[in-house]
Amino acid sequence: MNSGTVKWQRNLFIASFIVPTLLFFGVFTIYPVAQGLYYSFFDWSGMSDKKTFVGFDNFVEMFHDPIIWRAIGNDYFLVAGKIVGIMLLATFFAVALTRFGFRLAGFFRSIFFIPNVISVVVIGVLWNFIYNPQIGFLNGFLSLFTKEQVTITWLGFPGHTIWMLLPPAIWAGIGFYMILLIAAIQSIPESYYEAASIEGAGQWKQFWSITVPLTWEQIKVSILNIMMTTLNGSFVIVWIMTEGGPDNSTQVMGSYLYQMAFRQYHFGYGAAIGFIILVLSLITTIVLQRLMRHDTVEMS
């Protein structure tokens, strides 16, 4: 065999392992994403021959659309609420289950992760039932303390309903980040903690001077991940629980995109919302990364 055929064989092998995957990825991911960006410059009701190029009109229209501003506000409300709620609880659980010497730590860890393996649709339906005005848990519980039956429509207030979506989102998200942080804490050498406690540092001191700095990478990844998954498409809870209502008050960008495109057939406008989601999530990633890099410098 001369070196020519050997090389040819090698290249053929590489191609046969690269091309099918890339073809698949190109057709079903890259091409649709690129088209999504392209469509955002068109006015289009879904009929293929009635696509009109409108330049930046969709974005200008969006600028004057109060619902999109509300949706962006809601998205960032959920991002902030989830980051605070999930990180506080996940960190607390991770520390409690690794550093406090509970005998049942492994058991709790397994239990706490369960919401993460359940479909978000199911979680939405379950929480709908908690909030249900007639037969729900929350009103049933409150009724124990009142003379009359409590019938609050928890998901019916235009002003506050977005707050009601935060508990299910936090409840459903914690396990994943807890596992991530537990793995990070377990990779810290035990001797660090031993040395610290010999020097008389308590749990609290140890947490701030050992655990936080040494798991900062994972904390950062977690915060970025919460932000990205929230902005990028976790609108299932919103969709299942309120469909963006009442009166569009709980609309987030993802659900508004879905509604505009697949309910009202403004596909161009929907695509433009997608474009905005991409831009905002990239900007937020950069900003958060800057902020958190600054923090590490201060700490070390």
């Binding site: 990825f25 990028n232 609108f235 929907g270 474009f275 990239l282």
Partner: peptide
């Protein structure tokens, strides 16, 4: 470049592809 293409795609919101996917 190929590796980077796959990795960076994880940053792109999948909702962006929903509308074109439907028509595709």
């Amino acid at each position: 470049a190929l590796f980077l293409l796959y990795i960076s795609s994880m940053m792109v919101p999948f909702v962006l592809a929903l509308i074109p996917l439907f028509f595709l």
